[in-house]
């Protein structure tokens, strides 16, 4: 089972994320899948290790999900951590992907919450459409054409 994301959806997601950065006065917004893959990021990402950030965000959501199970809760879908300069708001979207917003004193938690809620609705719509499309799309198409030689070539150092 693979996740395949096409340009269309990724562009739609990027639009939501770009807008959220502006509307919430956020420093960084990113979307991560539950396994820790970064799907989309926006804002001041130049000096940020978004790959590592993505795996850690997925890790905390996974850990909280584990705790929820023990407590017979469904999920703990929202986390908020407050630092001196940076704050992070992490939201599970439709139990599929994670929306993380990093912000500073230019924004307030109230504003972030409000904008995150709207973005969640938009993201849910996009992912629902994506899920419907995937089975028809035919799996991980480009890899059918790969030869054993292609794979071997990767490892010639």
């Amino acid at each position: 089972m693979n996740v395949v994301m096409y340009e269309d959806e990724l562009n739609q997601i990027q639009t939501v994320v770009d807008k959220l950065v502006r509307d919430a006065n956020a420093r960084v917004v990113c979307i991560v899948d539950k396994n820790g893959q970064l799907i989309s990021a926006s804002g001041e990402t130049d000096n940020l290790d978004t790959t590592s950030l993505a795996s850690l965000i997925a890790g905390t959501i996974a850990a909280m999900g584990g705790m929820a199970k023990l407590l017979k809760e469904n999920e703990f879908p929202t986390q908020f951590h407050e630092g001196v300069k940076a704050n992070i708001h992490i939201q599970l979207v439709g139990n599929r992907v994670i929306l993380a917003v990093i912000f500073d004193s230019r924004a307030t938690l109230g504003l972030v919450r409000l904008r995150v809620k709207r973005a969640c609705d938009e993201l849910n719509a996009i992912f629902e459409a994506l899920m419907k499309r995937v089975p028809a799309g035919g799996g991980s198409a480009p890899f059918g054409e790969i030869t054993d030689e292609d794979i071997d070539n990767l490892f010639n150092d």
Binding site: M1, N2, V3, V4, M5, Y6, E7, L10, N11, D33, N35, G36, Q37, I39, S140, P142, F143
Partner: peptide
């Protein structure tokens, strides 16, 4: 579950 991104043309696998 590998993750294929057609926009950045990346394929991500987890080991």
């Amino acid at each position: 579950m590998s993750f294929i991104n057609y926009l950045s043309r990346e394929i991500n696998c987890k080991i």
